[in-house]
Amino acid sequence: MRIELKREGGIAFLPGLNRPRTFELGDLPPAQAEAITRSVHAASFFQQPSVVGTASKGAADQTRYTLTVEVGGEGAEGGRRHTVQLLEPVQDPHLHALLELLKQAERDLRREAARPHG
């Protein structure tokens, strides 16, 4: 399974944080990958509409997340791909949990990258 997380909006345009980040679940620690996979299913991600949440009138500086989940292989969901845009605040508890897991994975990767090599 591959997941892309793209962030838009927020109080500033920060080019480094606005770049989409792709997670190959196979490259993540197994426990984290499993938690994310479970969360994708718990959220019924492939049944979600393409936009979740509504922008309220006069709102500003809110973040918008675009999640794309792609499933490879021959399984029941093999070859499927779906994109959902989440507007803050994310009310659906399962989608919220999925987003938090991805943000955590992103933070872990960032911390790892910041660590000196060798």
Partner: peptide, 11 residues
């Protein structure tokens, strides 16, 4: 949690 933003939601 660890939320990196501040916003105005209209209210």
């Amino acid at each position: 949690m660890n939320y990196n933003n501040a916003f105005w939601d209209g209210q």
